[in-house]
Design a protein around this nucleic acid. Sequence first.
DNA 1: CACTTGACCTGTCCGC
DNA 2: TGCGGACAGGTCAAGT
Length: 316
Amino acid sequence: MPELPEVETIRIGLSGLLPGRRIADVRYDWPKSFPNSEEDTKQFLVNATILDVRRRAKVLLIDLDSAYTLVIHLKMTGQLVYVGTQGLPVASRQSLVRTKDKQAASSYTLEQRFGAGHPNDSLIGDLPDKSTRVIFTFTDASQLFFNDQRKFGWVRLLPTAEVPNIDFFKKVGPEPLGAEFTSSNFRNCIRRRPRSCIKAVLLDQTIVAGIGNIYADESLWAAKIHPTTLVDTISTPRLNRLYEELRTVLLLAIEKGGSTDKNYVNAEGKKGSYLLFASVFRREGQACPRCGATIIKLRVAGRGTHICPKCQKAAL
DNA sequence: CACTTGACCTGTCCGC
DNA sequence: TGCGGACAGGTCAAGT
């Protein structure tokens, strides 16, 4: 679930918490979550000090003074939560999703679950918990937890100089919020797949970086484009509109701290509130905020896809 | 070459 | 109430 806005929110949080801290110890219970040799870990991670926290696409990069970098992909259910020596704030220890009373949890409405008045409520109880895969302990006894319920994510330790050479970074497309990324760049990227449907192209990380299911649906709704529309039938003005809407949606999502559907939390274990502002994502059966028609859910490019059938008939 | 499907995993929810 | 299966969706690998 973490897409560009969620990973960026975590980056912002961690960049105020981690630089300057020295790693004293690393533990993990699932090797695929931490596929690094004992030797590298001992030599380049333990006793290293964190210099910087960066992001490229949906990947977080934590640079160390050992000239190595922690390359972290959260995939669908990954979390990176920092806990200081005082622990998480007491008020944030309550947990709705992790409650043992499953009936109560499932009866919450969207607004109750995400807290219209408290969009930053915590989703995290005491750590480590059963989803914790990697624990970094710093010399001041504070800790960074990598949690990942579904075990798809990973934390790789690589020489900083080699990070741009890994397969993913060699193939990944441009940053959609980059200052130099223009509407004409966007059109050229998208039109590399003229006979594909627009949603599949938006989700393809080699075309444009960082877009996932939530922001693909939201930006296509905003630009009034049906997700199955073939790229070469979309006009230049309509692609320009999609470029503008996509950037607007991503920026708003960062401002709201990302989208918390089930698992996502920021560096302090708190939820993002963007879904309260979403127009179509996870809103099937509700009214389209623009025309009032009922939002429906389809399957496009193998993904659950939410549209307004009245607003998104085609792209002209 | 382009597109689709399956694998990687666990937790939740639905229908029988 | 229990159980099997569908579903969630980021990315890579394999298949069509």
